[in-house]
Design a protein around this nucleic acid. Structure first.
Lengths: 231, 231
DNA sequence: ACCTGAACACCGTTCAAGT
DNA sequence: ACCTGAACACCGTTCAAGT
């Protein structure tokens, strides 16, 4: 299963953030650069999804020959890794605020994380399968620090972080993929009602019909934090 | 983003379970059938991962021309859907046992769900992005029924189910993709220690080094259930 | 140092045709 | 009803070559 992710250190493996004003360059002749490649990859992914990213299409958008990309980037995998991490830059409070409200901070951090991924729906399904880039590690570090300060003992920290990670990733991937056309939503709804007698409890809970994703995310997160909270 | 998933009803859209004795047919001339295609697709996915599944390779393994598959199956997407659902058949207690231990039942159901997916690591990353097949719906219905009997009120049922779903999916996807070669593990470990001064709390929690995935899954699940439990 | 086109070994799927 | 080969429009990536 995707064996070699070791030699991933290409020419520049720093975190790269996409400057948002690069909406659509007039395809002029600004020099090809890793930054530009990554930014354009994000645009392309936003526009056409994971399957829409093609080295050839990417080169086209960037205004170069298809093979020029390979000087800046090892391969397509690397493009995914860079695009993913670039989208997860954390623009939070630069240093930890001295506030006793650790719960509020954790909720804020995780809601921001989720929001960042939902802005680029392809990122949600990609993240858990990829190496942890610097921006991701930075978010994890901040989360750990907050929990630790809140009184979570070191031996429990690992479980606490993974639980929150698992919850956020699951919630975001699911939400991103259920955010589909209304046609599909209607079809699913109809299919489920047709199958109502086979799945009565599901139907009663309106599992697939309720639209309040944000509220559900928040409530479930509260449940988890209730359990995690140092007694 | 994967627009049309509507007309997915192909010739036979029932749940199909893979008979485990079909290890490797002597490539004899048993007739091509949907069952056999799906079973072979699972074999191929197990052997070569998501990217390894190719209509041409699948046809080869099944001993037919590449295009023969398309009589039984709409397209490659359908193969994924069928393979996924076939792997998630629930062989649990056929009817709900009358036991007061709802927590034990929920834990058992979710551990079984996770175990089924880990037996076929490709399934974890596929599931949240796909339509809910009959086997998946069956598992969800059973979960809902158990929670409902345990006293979770109808308005909370939706959140409860999604929270558990999110946690299980997140945990399983993450676990499946971190279960990589020891080389990669060693590399990640080394990289993280090298970055120790940048991410001290992560390092202290041994986030990526602890190997007790099953225990961590169980503990986090307990936290969540603590929060969910009807008071 | 940076970019390129031609070429290779693949893909999924359409189509017109076979039995 | 079931299967097939040829063909089309794509892929990612190697390589030898250009500036």
């Amino acid at each position: 299963m995707a064996a070699k992710r070791s030699g991933a250190r290409s020419k520049r493996s720093q975190g790269i953030s996409v400057s948002p004003q690069s909406v659509q360059e007039p395809r002029s002749e600004l020099p090809l650069s890793l930054q530009r490649i990554v930014a354009t990859a994000v645009e392309l992914l936003d526009a056409e999804g994971v399957d829409g990213l093609t080295m050839r299409k990417l080169a086209d958008r960037v205004g170069s020959g298809a093979m020029s990309l390979y000087w800046h980037v090892d391969n397509k995998e690397a493009v995914f890794d860079l695009a993913l991490d670039s989208v997860l830059e954390y623009r939070g409070p630069p240093q930890i605020v001295e506030s006793p409200d650790w719960r509020g901070e954790v909720v804020h951090m995780l809601e921001d994380w989720r929001a960042s991924m939902l802005r680029h729906p392809w990122s949600a399904s990609l993240l858990p399968r990829r190496a942890l880039g610097p921006n991701i590690l930075c978010r994890l570090e901040l989360l750990s620090k907050t929990l630790s300060k809140a009184g979570v003992a070191d031996p429990d920290l690992n479980v606490a972080i993974w639980s929150l990670w698992n919850y956020v990733m699951g919630a975001t991937v699911t939400r991103a993929s259920f955010d589909i056309s209304d046609d599909d939503r209607a079809a699913a709804q109809q299919r489920l009602t047709r199958l109502g007698e086979r799945y009565p409890t599901i139907e009663r809970s309106r599992l697939l019909l309720d639209n309040d994703w944000d509220g559900a995310f928040r409530k479930g997160l509260d449940f988890l934090l209730d359990g995690l909270a140092p007694r």
